[in-house]
């Protein structure tokens, strides 16, 4: 088991290496390359730029530059923002919690609803409810998230005036209730895609498990249907879902970007778009790397969780 985990960590590190190469390549694609941040400074002459380029090692061969860049990256030196010269990592750190709050709450919501819908679909396979769930999930996956955001704003903020249309809190009001009211709409919007995906996979995982011999055994020993569902079907159907949760992370992060834009939520997604608007490439690249790293960590966490929940892997 330790072997398995070590090899998975090794694989992740290797992937991280490729990810960093992609990140580096993108950075050098930016107009003016890494030097452009100084090109904008007023009073900068060509000679100055040349000197800076030399100091930064930009006249070195690309592989060397990459290694230097990677070395800085590993030491937490991710460059500085063009906008306010703040360290990139610090800026991202400021915006990360809001995104995590949004992602975590919407995931919890989506997993609860998605599991319920998926299991119900599987238990009543080919019923009207099952068809509706299938169609609903397919449509949900086809709705542009930002538009869904506009629709709920139109309904719940503009027409009904129940909930705020954006922001993370009312200024000067830090109460939990106020925070919750701001969270509801973005959370629901972000949960839409996850609910759809999760319920589809949950349905097929449930059907798979329900056809297993050990479920027949559970019935043969006289367990009640509810007990069979909880102790035997759900417990096993959750295993592939752990992997799915890891794989869905990039989609979730992408969704968060859109939801944050619509709801002016001060997270990583908004930061990304703002930075794009200012051509603040160091921050953009930093965010790209952070999102890829989050994904890798998520997948690794999913693998570890899987090991915890599946004795066959744990004890192998």
């Amino acid at each position: 088991m330790a072997r398995y985990l070590l090899s998975r960590i090794g694989q992740s590190l290797f992937l991280l290496l490729i990810v960093s190469i992609i990140g580096f390549a993108l950075l050098h694609l930016t107009p003016g390359g890494p030097l452009s941040q100084f090109a904008l400074t007023p009073g900068m002459t060509a000679a100055d730029l040349h000197r800076i380029a030399h100091e930064m090692g930009l006249d070195q061969p690309l592989p060397i530059q990459y290694l230097v860049w990677l070395w800085h990256l590993l030491q937490g030196d991710w460059g500085r923002s063009y906008r306010d010269q703040e360290p990139v990592l610090a800026i991202i750190g400021e915006h990360l919690p809001a995104t995590l709050e949004l992602m975590a709450s919407s995931t919890i919501l989506a997993v609860i609803i998605g599991t319920w819908v998926g299991v119900l679909s599987a238990m009543r396979r080919y019923s009207v409810a099952d068809y509706l769930a299938t169609i609903g999930a397919m449509v949900a996956l086809s709705i542009p998230t930002f538009w869904f955001g506009l629709v709920v704003i139109y309904i719940f903020s503009v027409s009904l005036e129940w909930l705020p249309s954006g922001g993370i809190a009312t200024i000067g009001n830090g109460s939990v209730l106020d925070l919750a009211r701001h969270l509801i709409l973005p959370c629901v919007v972000l949960a839409l895609v996850t609910v759809a995906t999760w319920s589809r996979y949950m349905r097929s995982a449930t059907l798979d498990v329900a056809a297993q011999d050990y479920v027949r055994t559970a019935r043969a020993k006289g367990l009640r249907p509810g007990q069979i569902l909880r102790q035997h079907i759900l417990r096993n159907a959750m295993l592939p879902m752990i992997t799915l949760a890891g794989l869905q992370l990039p989609t979730l992060l992408g969704g968060a970007l859109v939801a944050e834009t619509v709801f002016t939520w001060p997270g990583m997604g908004r930061l990304f778009l703002d930075s794009l608007g200012y051509r603040d490439y160091p921050v953009v690249m930093g965010l790209l790397m952070v999102s890829a790293i989050l994904t890798l960590i998520g997948n690794l966490a999913a693998d570890i969780l899987y090991v915890v929940f599946d004795p066959r892997v744990r004890l192998a």
């Binding site: 490729i18 990810v19 992609i22 993108l26 990039p250 790209l288 999102s291």
Partner: peptide, 22 residues
């Protein structure tokens, strides 16, 4: 395939926007 895995680590909207902005 590792290249595929690596590209899939990035949320596609992030990549898309970066490339579009460039």
């Amino acid at each position: 395939m590792r290249l595929v895995d690596a590209v899939l680590c990035f949320p596609s909207i992030f990549l898309l926007l970066t490339l579009a902005a460039l």
